[in-house]
Nucleic acid binder design. Structure first.
Lengths: 339, 339
DNA sequence: GTGAAAGCGCTAACAA
DNA sequence: TTGTTAGCGCTTTCAC
């Protein structure tokens, strides 16, 4: 830092007590050792006067724990993830935990590296929204019994609790709603195809298609960005067989869809129906308000916090994963073709 | 962690070299000490086999530095801040720095506490978007010569470089544009009134009003949230003297404005003109696309990174603060009253 | 080219 | 009620 040389030793010398006593007082365990209140008060006063601040590295090295949890997210520039990060960060702060947060940029290799160095940080636990397809790089951490909770994306082979939305039901609901309005050609634009939340939506999409006995299906897309949505939508509009409805797997994708539509002077509802995932606040105010599948983002984040906290308290607790129910928010982007 | 007992000592025992040599090899300084390549290769191989991961707490304690920078943000749930956080996090990751990120929840007291404990973390530097009005709690860090960079918000009394948008010019431009379209009653809805970026916008607003010789002015608002925007807009609509144009200081506020308007069946442009700050992507696709003042968010974040990195390299460098020019993005939310 | 030894600041047995 | 002592894992001076 700079001239942070005030240590317990300094305080010990100035008060005439041993470093042990000073340490006990200053880390709050002194009652347990029945240090007299008067001694404690003196030490605390002196520490304050000196501007003593405990060196966390020393504490960490000694106690082999940090009061810090790690939070690994794919990308903070995606509102879905940054909202989660915000909730988690605040929740742990309130409980005197630090959060060591890393943005993987939706990149598997980054995630691997980050997680491989994570054990060097002596973290107490980890909340991760994986960017990765497999979990080899996690196995070591799991074996070391580091408490981990997954959000949004998870690995079915791993005995690690996860919290997410029931994406399958969400997509199924979406498709069936569209079908009930007479849509027979429903195309979907996916995000990251490697990730389970996306895969589950695809599965729900196909099951919806087959339940409804439709014989058109179309899935494409590669990542959850506006640019990708834009490109995919253009591809769809350039194809021979055009869908009557689009199911976009996120609002970032939706923005790209709208961009493509705009450029061609096409209107949501009149020219093509649209349904999205995420239910961002602004959907209400769009030219055509867009029907969407909402995820309970805050609940998801809060549950993850609870789970990790439980686990920190009791490392041997048995925990259940949870898939929250998505919620259909109807607006005005779906034309009724039943006439 | 768990059973992370592989230390340099383990590696030393297994290879027959001293911990000194092992340390030199494993932290990459061995060339300097002319350790033979063959020794190095053997040690590296063994370390890899053992799954050795350096204990950062020990490194930190010994070297009194962390390769970690702190990032203090008001709230990750605000897209403006989360975008910045994303850029910064990725940039430092690329340069092998860890980022210790904290969300203050736009709360002064939180920030104070966070910053007071920060020196215990042995951080190498700090990027902060302050939530606070004064800088007393920063003085100690400044005195300790900890490299700090401010983003968006800053303190003029402090010799700390900042990077932000020229908010004054942004607001001035906005008001003058509105006035040039014949608007004489322009109300503005502000965000956090304590924060300099907001204050500068207010100043620009008032200067615009007076330059244009208008005699109506109205400023209210308390925080950068949709809810606040909604409440303020309702207040405005319930007042006797109604403005013809609204200048909202962020897109989060804008959403609240639209919500209030929607509820009353009022239309942007036809019933009231609207201009916002932030230029979110979705503004293009709103029922009435909204004219906005854009901030170069990524540039801001990247410049902050560059400044801090420079400072880390050379602690005595003299650095310039910078105010980026805002950019007016015209859309269709401003009616021309000059007829 | 390699190693012995000291010590970063803190905590925790163990003693008294 | 308080203190002595050892040591967490690493780096670094000094020595050879």
């Amino acid at each position: 830092m700079g001239f942070e040389n005030v240590t317990i030793k300094t305080v010990a010398e100035r008060t005439g007590f041993s470093t042990t006593t000073v340490s006990r007082v200053l880390n709050g365990t002194y009652r347990k050792y029945r240090v007299s209140e008067i001694t404690a008060a003196g030490i605390i006063a002196e520490a304050k006067k000196l501007g003593y601040i405990p060196n966390q590295a020393a504490v960490n090295l000694r106690k082999r724990t940090n009061n810090t949890i790690g939070l690994v997210v794919p990308s903070l520039s995606n509102p879905f993830f940054s909202t989660i990060a915000s909730v988690i960060s605040k929740a742990f702060y309130l409980r005197n935990y630090s959060v060591y947060m890393v943005d993987c940029d939706e990149n598997e290799e980054n995630e691997r590296q980050i997680l491989s160095s994570v054990s060097g940080q002596n973290l107490d636990g980890l909340i991760v929204i994986p960017s990765s397809t497999d979990h080899k790089h996690l196995d070591r951490l799991v074996a070391a019994r580091l408490p981990i909770i997954f959000i949004d994306r998870y690995f079915e082979g791993l005995p690690i609790p996860y919290v997410s939305t029931n994406n399958y039901i969400g997509a199924l609901t979406a498709v069936r709603l569209l079908a009930s309005r007479g849509h027979e050609k429903i195309a979907c634009i996916q995000g990251n195809p490697l990730v389970i939340s996306n895969k589950e939506r695809v599965r729900g999409y196909f099951d919806g298609i087959s339940m409804e006995g439709l014989n058109y299906s179309y899935v494409s897309g590669s990542e959850f960005t506006q640019q990708a949505g834009y490109e995919e939508m253009n591809r769809i509009l350039d194809a021979n067989e055009k869908p009557t409805a689009i199911f976009a797997f996120s609002d970032t994708l939706t923005l790209g869809v709208l961009q493509a539509l705009n450029e061609r002077g096409l209107k949501v509802y009149d020219d093509i129906s649209l349904l999205s995932f995420d239910n961002s606040r602004y959907l209400d105010f769009l030219e055509t308000p867009i029907t969407s599948i909402a995820q309970p983002v805050k609940q998801i984040a809060e549950r993850a916090v609870t789970l990790l906290l439980e686990r920190l308290d009791n490392p041997h607790i048995d925990q259940e994963s949870i898939l929250f129910a998505p919620k259909l928010i109807e607006r005005k982007s779906i034309k009724n073709l039943n006439k």
